[in-house]
């Protein structure tokens, strides 16, 4: 009897949160030479492309941040994220709902939440970063929550938090037509803190 109940529970649980049959690949971006991770499952396509801290520093210095603030964010394991609903536009397919607040970074024993945009913005306000810098930050980051209809995609920066060069796992949660889904990637490497001149030096 107990075994039967256990079996029914297992079926119900697996229906409630389908485990991913995901494809995960990792390669080097052909143009930049930076590492890229690509996760695909159901309608979801997620690409994470390393952003060297020097790139991110340059971007935010150019938007009006002071050096300390630009450096603080740049060293927080920043990736360029691209999310796409793989269902072709016009085709009947699920809406994808992403909530970064439910993603977790695995490093050590306790999975940690991603640093939230609101936390960064509080820091920028407290340190007196100009309004135009804060506006650029808001729109350059990947939105915390977003729904993707078939054919939609979006991009933006995601900060996972750990120091440059750290290796982490990423637990993903999303919804397809209201149904919860989960998956993950292991061995994601935070971009190393190499400067642009280091890169040029390597080429010479």
């Amino acid at each position: 009897m107990m075994r039967r109940i256990g079996g029914v529970l297992a079926i119900l649980l697996s229906a409630a949160v389908p485990l991913a049959t995901a494809e995960v690949s990792q390669d080097l971006d052909a143009d930049s030479g930076l590492a890229r991770w690509h996760f695909r499952d159901g309608a979801l396509s997620l690409e994470l492309i390393q952003r060297l801290p020097d790139q991110t520093r340059a971007f935010f210095l150019g938007r009006g941040f002071d050096a300390d603030s630009a450096d603080r964010f740049a060293r927080a394991c920043v990736f360029q994220a691209i999310v796409r609903n793989r269902t072709p536009a016009g085709a009947a397919g699920p809406a994808l709902a992403i909530d970064l607040g439910r993603w977790r970074v695995e490093r050590g024993d306790v999975p940690l939440p991603l640093p939230l945009e609101s936390e960064w913005q509080q820091r920028w306000s407290a340190s007196g970063q100009p309004k135009r810098a804060q506006i650029a930050f808001r729109w350059a980051l990947f939105p915390m929550q977003q729904v993707f209809q078939p054919g939609d995609y979006n991009w933006g920066m995601i900060a996972l938090g750990p120091a440059p060069g750290s290796e982490v796992g990423l637990d993903l949660v999303w919804h397809e037509n209201g149904q919860p889904r989960q998956g993950g990637m292991q061995g994601v490497r935070c971009p190393p803190d190499e400067t642009v001149s280091d890169q040029l030096g390597d080429e010479r």
Binding site: D29, A30, D31, S32, L34, R36, E47, I49, Q50, R51, L52, D54, Q55, T56, A58, F59, G62, Q80, I82, R84, P88, A89, G90, Q149, P150, G151, D152, Y153, W155, V196, Q199
Partner: peptide, 17 residues
Amino acid sequence: LAMAPAWAAGGMGQGMT
């Protein structure tokens, strides 16, 4: 270089909702 990864990722969405 700051823009490179995003360019490389490239690609367009399709249609309108």
